[in-house]
Write a protein that binds this DNA or RNA. Structure first.
Lengths: 207, 207
DNA sequence: TGTACATCAGTGAACGCGCGTTCACTGATGTAC
DNA sequence: TGTACATCAGTGAACGCGCGTTCACTGATGTAC
């Protein structure tokens, strides 16, 4: 259990690793009450410390949320990369699997997903978060480029990657927001993801 | 200015039409601070009444938000219908125009858009809201069916309509959440919408 | 037309609540000699 | 090994705040006779 980060002083002096435990508590709260419903006080309570303790590790409330978002983006990117790597390079299946990882993440931790992709003030100014976000899209662009036989920097690749992203993003939100119930015939994720990958990457370019 | 609703007693006895003015105030607040940032107290302040006055028109806070969401869904459906009607029946342009109306709505009132499509407790149990939501998707299904030459109730129509919805929904959220900045080459909405309509409705079915 | 009454939208004061953040503190740990 | 000192994570009490909701009320309006 006690996986100590390499550069920590030893293993724990006072509490152990309150910072990590607070982040874990905040993740739980964000899942339970949404990004706006979380409170520093309750996170401290869950971690078993006083309500003032978090301020030894974070400047203020928004900084805690930013830390949780950063950690979430890391996990999302890793999941997407792993999914893409599990399929043949350049295949439609690799693209669809990546989309599946994205949707799975949204379903598994909708709160963090909302936090990561919502418009929270301060996130745009946080360079680390923006870089991590760009890294996620980079994974998509790589897979799309391999599939199209184009350069990852090609504008056409970017356009197709954005289409894929929009679709998967929309499907994720509609799913976690329970808006798919109005659909009578509901296909499974994989059919949708393969169909959309084929539609976006298989068809000739626009114009 | 004073557009009196037909079934109101006369024009106004005490305040005039506090209910409508509260809804307008809440819309402003939802745009300014998001669906979770709105408070009954501030809405009352904006409408120029005491903080207890809203409770003469709404049971509690969630009910006010539900009223705003219902009104928003009405406007969204009307905008989508008007956009579709402005183009040739059964054309890809009609579908794209509908998508454009959807994106425009999200851009124009992102707060209400989030409120309408977010997962707010109580919304699922509100039959009126669910019906209005289904009506919106119905407009999409109609246009998709006309374009495909299929019945609106055909499962294939539903599947295609859902793909279109996912894409436009995702694009809307990525736009209002400022997540498109990571894209270098950004095409305009219309190119995207036409391309996606063609990809989803023009290509042969999945499988 | 005038009077008595019912209605009910809006008042203003009050309640209890949980919050974010601050502050001086304490006490365990690590370090220099 | 022992002692004196610096560090700093966590304490607990306190602050001021805005909130949602309630309550008895008041006074303008509409209505019945």
């Amino acid at each position: 259990m006690a996986d100590v980060t390499g550069d920590a002083p030893r293993s724990g002096y006072h509490h152990g690793d309150l910072r990590a435990q607070l982040i874990a508590a905040v993740r739980e709260l964000v899942e339970a009450h949404g990004p706006d419903g979380f409170s520093v006080a309750e996170a401290a309570r869950r971690a078993g410390v006083s309500s003032a303790a978090p301020y030894k590790h974070f400047r203020d409330r928004p900084e805690i949320l930013r830390a949780v978002a950063a950690e979430g983006l890391d996990r999302l990117r890793q999941a997407m990369q792993a999914a893409a790597d599990s399929r043949p390079h350049g295949s439609l299946e690799a693209v669809a699997a990546m989309g599946q990882a994205y949707v799975d993440f949204a379903r598994r931790e909708p709160g963090v997903f909302r936090l990561v992709f919502g418009l929270t003030e301060g996130h745009e100014a946080d360079q680390e978060l923006m870089l991590k976000g760009a890294a996620c899209l980079g994974v998509v662009a790589q897979a799309a480029a391999a599939c199209l036989g184009l350069d990852p920097g090609d504008p056409e690749t970017g356009r197709r990657a954005y289409m894929l992203w929009s679709f998967v993003h929309g499907h994720s939100f509609l799913t976690i927001d329970r808006k798919t119930s109005v659909m009578r015939e509901q296909a499974d994720d994989w059919s949708y993801l393969m169909a959309i990958s084929r539609a976006v990457l298989g068809a000739p370019g626009p114009g």
